[in-house]
């Protein structure tokens, strides 16, 4: 069988996997929506959640598409398409593919891989490297949920603080990392400036929501602040980096 990373066979495999993800997502969406109605949640609230999440998702989804574009040069379209639609993450797939290619002496993922053995090895590494993320949730769920219920039963106030601290710990790590490059001169400050713009736009949205009673803005504030900050990055980077 003649091998090509863009063969019809690989596209069929990709379509099967993508269809699975879509069906699962739609199933969970419908089920949760129905349960929301049963719990007495308003249709407006549920629909607002869907609409605002959909709008928020577009920008980061395009950045994931960028991952497919980058990887497609070496791996064709189907494999990166599969990998970035299921379990994967942008920060994972590129290093995984590079590490696998390196073990075959391929230094850079710039050219289309035509050796089926190398391609298969890369597919295996990308798949096995991410496996714990899909195997562990069903195994650990009972223990984690049990722990949460125990904390809540013992001290509901601490349970609330515990959950908030989890969010804040995660946010702190991603805020802290913005400062990692500021020793590299003005260029290293760009992520920090972008962060400030995003925060400032969010703060303005917050003021508009509270002071001007623009309640509708609540659902779009995060998408707006993100897009403003990304647009700012496009303009500020050439000015600073030259």
């Amino acid at each position: 069988m003649e091998f090509s990373p863009n063969s019809t066979f690989l596209y069929i495999v990709a379509i099967i996997v993508i269809a699975f993800v879509l069906v699962q997502s739609v199933y969970f969406l419908v089920r949760a929506y129905r349960q929301g109605k049963k719990l007495g949640m308003s249709t407006a609230k549920l629909r607002k959640t869907i609409l605002s999440t959909a709008i928020f998702t577009v920008a980061p989804a395009v950045s994931i598409l960028m991952g497919v574009v980058v990887l497609a040069k070496a791996l064709g379209i189907p494999l990166p398409w599969i990998r970035l639609s299921v379990i994967g993450a942008l920060t994972y797939e590129l290093p995984a593919a590079s590490a696998a290619a390196n073990s075959f002496g391929i230094k850079e993922l710039g050219e289309l891989i035509t050796d089926p053995k190398v391609y298969s090895a890369i597919a295996w590494v990308m798949t096995l490297g991410i496996l714990p993320s899909i195997i562990l949730p069903p195994i650990l769920m009972k223990g984690i949920r049990g722990g949460m219920v125990k904390i809540k039963g013992k001290d509901p106030k601490w349970s609330d603080i515990f959950m908030t601290s989890l969010f804040l710990g995660m946010i702190s790590a991603f805020l802290g990392v913005v400062f990692a490059h500021i020793n590299e001169g003005l260029k290293g400050w760009i992520p920090f400036f972008v962060l400030l713009v995003s925060a400032a736009v969010m703060a303005i949205c917050g003021l508009l929501i509270k002071k001007c009673n623009m309640k509708w803005l609540e659902n779009y504030a995060i998408a707006i602040s993100m897009l403003c900050a990304m647009t700012f990055a496009v303009f500020i980077t050439p000015v600073i980096a030259g």
């Binding site: 960028m66 946010i171 760009i190 400030l196 050439p238």
Partner: peptide, 15 residues
Amino acid sequence: PAFDNILPALFGGLA
């Protein structure tokens, strides 16, 4: 640069 800075753009607002 827009995609390079997607995380600070996201976490600034969330923060």
